[in-house]
Structure formats: structure tokens, C-alpha cells
Amino acid sequence: MNNVNDIITQELRAFASSLLESGEVSAFLGFAHGSLPMTTRPFVAKTPEDAQKLVWNSFCVLNLANYLPALLKSIEPPRGPKDPPPEGPLPKAGVIATGCWSRNIVVQTQENQVDRSRLVIAGVSSRGMVDRKKVLKALDGKEITKIEEKDHDLIVEADGAIKELNRWSVTRDNCQSCVHSSAVVFDHWIGPKLDDRQAPNRFKQIEDIEKMTADERWAWFSKEIETCIRCYACRNACPLCYCETCFVDDSNPQWVGKSIEKADAAIFHLLRAFHCAGRCTDCGACESACPMGIRMRLLTKKLEKDVFELFGDEAGMDASKPLTMTTYKLEDPQGFIFEPKHGQKKE
């Protein structure tokens, strides 16, 4: 019982079941085992018995904050659209949160999507989640039938053969460049608490692309999105996406075409990413959810880099600061503004 994940799982189950037992929360959001190796499924425990199904491992790749607005609504007593809210405090929900998820909860609080006072956050330090595409690649695409997780290694069984992989080498790109791996807001701590990570260069992936020429970048981007099937898994896995009507569904005017042709796919991805500007915490859920393996996270990472470098902001780190795009400073950089050379106009 010295495996970190087992310790966290045990503590989590105990904490969740005590909250549910005492009635402090009506639901606890976490992950349960999936039906295939390397999968987990988001799971809402409503009884102390349910809480025993909660698990913690390196495959919790989705962002639980995504479920919170709907979950909080679902546990409120039923009422008609015009009925006043019930008197007294509304029921609470518990949730486990890593650094990025907790930052998303902060963003959701800032945007009035969740009520912090109705959440009991079990903070945890993420040790980086595993990218199953990387594991598949490491096994040359062989079918993985079983995977066992140790603290620093993964024992993978694929087509009869057993292979040991270094866990960190197959963690997601966003986890490898993460600096805030521990929850920034929490009510209770689960498992060992890690300090902020010192990622050598968190924007290296972005800088490598920035060094390319415009044509090379376009070639890279076109290649990246060419297999997009427009299933919107990236959008729906994102805790920042909660609009009633998404821009892709607007029909009058219609901003984005519906096909998977290059123009439509490119506009979709660029706009989706841009909507996350100043709010994205690089949780990587979009990329993990993508069935086609598109690395659309690089676009939001680029925005994260610019937001950090131009405006000094990191989303979700401080609930008292306004979100980047909802504020301004008179001295904001404006090097991008076109300055005409005076008197050089033609004719």
C-alpha cells in the first residue's frame, strides 16, 4: 500500500463517503474505473457506498470542472423556471481537483458559473496524467489489454507481450510543461502535497513552432487539423465552454461552415481556441478527448503564453483579479498596431 495512487484513492473514498454520510454534500464528483485499460469515467457518487467506486490514477484526463455547473443545478430541489430559489442554503457538491481543475473552478467562479460556497473541494497534487496515445505509440500500436501502474512505471500488457514504460515519459504534453500541479483552492487535502513544478521551459513547444516561417506554420496547422471530424469533443470536454448556443451553431449569421473542409475546420479550431484566451489553464482535456489525435491544445497554449508575456496573467490563480479579457490597462502593449510611414503613400 505504498503506491501514491492507492493512498490517494483510499483517502478520497474515505473523505467522500464521510461528506456523503454526514450530508454535507449531496453528490461527490470524481472518477470511476472505465471498461478498457487506460480509461476512467467521470462519476458522481451520491451515497457512501458509491464513494467506494471512486478511483485515482494516471488516466484521469478529463477536467471535472466541466461537470460542475450542471451538477450543482441537478442537485438543487426541482423548481419551475419562474419559481424563486428555495430559502436557505442550496445543497453542496464535493469534487476532487488538481492544479488545473481547481484553476478552472476559480475561472468558473469569476464568471458566475459555479458558486464556490456550494463546493467542497478536495485538493490533490497531480503527478501528470498519462497520454494514452503516447503509450500506444510506445507499443507500436499494439493492442493494450492490461495496464498496471506503479509509482514511476507502467507495466503494459499488449498482445501477450509485457513492457515496462517510464511513467513520466508517456505523460501528456500539458502535464510535462505544467507548473501549478497542486490545487490552488481547496477545502481539504488528499494525499501528498507537491510544490510547484519547475518546468524547464514551459513554452518550448510553442517557441519551436514560432520559429518556423508562416508557410511552414500553415503547413503544420493544416496537417494537424486535416483529420478533424467536427465532433466537438474538444469543445465539450472544456470547462470553459458553457454557452447556451455555441458560435458553431449560430445560423444567422453563420460564422463557421459545417463541413470538415479545411477552411471550416481551421476557423472552428482558431475560434474555439480564441474563446479560451485568458481563461485556459492548459488542462489538456481537449486534446485527451479528441478521438482523432489532433493537438489543438497548442493553440490555447500559444494564447496562454501570450497572455502571460503580454499581460502577466495566469488564468485561475487569483479569484480577486479580473480575467484578462474582461479588463485592460492604458499601458497595454500595442506593438502590433500598424504604424504607417508618413508621406510614403503612393500617388
Binding site: P42, C231, A233, R235, A289, P291
Partner: peptide
């Protein structure tokens, strides 16, 4: 439906 995120990955694949 609890965990479903309502994307179209299943239907499109």
C-alpha cells in the same frame, strides 16, 4: 448519461 459530455465522437465514428 451522467458522464456524457454530449460530443459527437461516437456518432461520427
Amino acid at each position: 448519461s451522467q458522464s456524457c459530455i454530449n460530443c459527437g465522437a461516437c456518432t461520427f465514428l
